[in-house]
Amino acid sequence: MEVTLNVRRYDPDSAKPAPYYQEYDLEIDETHTVLDGLIKVREEVDGTLALRCSCRSAVCGSCAMRVNGHAVLACKTKVRDLLHRGSTKLTVEPAGNMPIIKDLVVEFNVFWDKIRAVEPWLQPQGVPPQQEYIAPNEDMLHLAGVMACIMCGACVSDCTVLEVDKHFLGPAALAKAYRFVADPRDDAEKSRLGKLVQYGGVWDCTRCMQCVQVCPKGVDPMGRIMALRDRAIENGYHNSNGARHAETFARSIKHSGTLDELRLPIGTFGIWNVKEMLKLIPLGLKAQMRGKRPPIFHKAIPGAENVRRIFEKVESKR
């Protein structure tokens, strides 16, 4: 079938480096992937096209890039699957949130720096046993879901927080951190979590699920971040806006069945956080004038006691 790859290009060695788009018309097979197409270009049409790729079977993590605006592994993405409504053109761009080196090649050091920042190695205490550590298989199976990460950077590319705050550790590094926090052989859970609740850590995730959506290996980075939040609270790290927000939220539902939006910011910042409370006032006043503010006396749903009962029952199961 005939297809046009519209590739975003950038050559830093040119006289006036500037990104531009170049179209390649190709005749390819129905089963071909985007990577097959790009390899065809660089082997037969235009040798100057730069991209990273290696395994062709979604295990090495080299070929993450944006196709039609979303991060994918080019080797795992069939051209045919992305041609909607009779279109024959695909737009191929480098991964996002990382500086571009050339064409589809991005600067990955920003990615590795964040991985390094979570001290990504096992930190057991004491002398290791003569033989292997004894560990439950279900824990290992659970961790296999995280170790399935191939560090392709698709999640980082499309992370909506990294787009506005480079300080965020990001989905890949946080999933990597979870791999150790959840490892029964690792003894540094508390200190790891202590670092992860700081600015740029687990609480900065917006839960937008971009990472879940684009991860080619089903790692569910956001789910891991949520699990880290839970463990952080369990480990006594209540003293952050995020933790207070989660706890106030849960408390509100537990007691009334619905969310008390007025109490939420107060619970989050803490009623004694005068600075943040003052900041809320202008908005509150304006909202009040527009009739927009939530009711001061939050009303419980009928039968709220049933919700409370479920809370108590399920929470006791943990």
């Binding site: 839960r207 927000h245 939220f249 539902i253 069945g257 619905t258 009928p302 049933n306 919700v307 399920v314």
Partner: peptide, 17 residues
């Protein structure tokens, strides 16, 4: 008498809940 869905916030604490 329907309650809040949890909005994803509750789920991060306790998915089963």
């Amino acid at each position: 008498s329907a309650s809040c869905t949890g909005a994803g916030v509750l789920q991060e604490k306790n998915r089963r809940l």
